[in-house]
């Protein structure tokens, strides 16, 4: 009986703990986070763009024809 009560108390405690997080819609926070989304996506495209340019440059350097050794 005592154990059952203890278990019930534990369940109540756990439920209360779970209730501590209040599921709430916070449009203010959402609006505040929008600039992060914009800046972040812009940042990724800029960095990847720079990498694309560098790779294109590396490829064109690597594609330069080498002087063929002529075996005579």
């Amino acid at each position: 009986m005592e154990q059952t009560t203890q278990l019930a108390e534990q369940i109540i405690e756990a439920t209360e703990q779970a209730m501590q997080y209040e599921f709430a819609f916070t449009p203010d926070r959402f609006i505040d986070s929008l600039p992060i989304m914009g800046t972040g996506m812009l940042g990724i495209f800029v960095v990847m763009g720079i990498i694309i340019l560098c790779v294109t440059g590396l490829n064109s350097l690597g594609a330069r024809p080498k002087k063929e050794k002529k075996d005579k």
Partner: peptide
Amino acid sequence: AAAQFGIFFTLCLASLFG
């Protein structure tokens, strides 16, 4: 680069959920 959109979208969504 484009496929990272989910990260930033979720950031906004998680902010919306408190």
